[in-house]
């Protein structure tokens, strides 16, 4: 596969030099030192590596970096703007929606994309959408509460 030499991550053009079939997660973590996206399984089953590609949630561990050519990649490091937490981050913090926190980046990236398409999800809609993300510490109910809180504060922030 052809090499990939450029990547747009969090609005920044990054120079890399990797084989096209390298996983996006490896490139982010090991080549660009963006370690907020986590390895959990390598088969797209746990969601810890979730990033947004052109706004859609994707499992970076099973995404070839070649597939992201010319696309906008957003990772957890790009979620806060100008030092202000994204409402989803603030809600996770406020609701204490984690224990070890290892799944949290992937949970939040998935939640951000959910709220884009469904700004006011019910608990069961959240559970359905988030089914591919594992929290082994078992904080699911707090994550649902945080996403609903984030939905509320995003709604209030809209003019």
């Amino acid at each position: 596969m052809e090499k990939v030499t450029a990547l747009n991550v969090n609005g920044v053009n990054q120079v890399v030099d990797v084989e096209g079939d390298t996983s996006l997660l490896t490139v982010l973590r090991d080549h660009l030192d963006l370690t907020g996206s986590k390895y959990g399984c390598g088969e797209g089953q746990c969601g810890a590596c979730t990033v947004l590609i052109n706004g859609f949630p994707r499992r970076s561990c099973i995404t070839h970096v070649a597939a992201t050519r010319g696309k906008q990649i957003t990772t957890i490091e790009g979620l806060a703007k100008n030092g202000k937490l994204h409402p989803v981050q603030q809600a996770f913090l406020d609701a204490g929606s984690f224990q070890c926190g290892y799944c949290t980046s992937g949970m939040m990236m998935t939640a951000v994309s959910l709220l884009k398409t469904n700004p006011n999800p019910t608990a069961s809609e959240i559970a359905h959408f988030m089914q591919g993300n594992i929290c082994r510490c078992g904080t699911y109910q707090r994550i649902i509460a945080a996403i609903q809180q984030a939905a509320k504060s995003m709604k209030e922030a809209r003019p």
Partner: peptide, 29 residues
């Protein structure tokens, strides 16, 4: 009292470095 996790912001911003996130100059895999 329910003091929140002390360094919670590090966790929600992806800045906290877990053992698998550590790196050093010249590091191999």
């Amino acid at each position: 009292t329910s003091l929140p996790k002390v360094d919670g912001v590090e966790f929600v911003t992806g800045k906290h470095r877990y053992p698998s996130d550590h790196r050093l100059p010249g590091m191999w895999f």
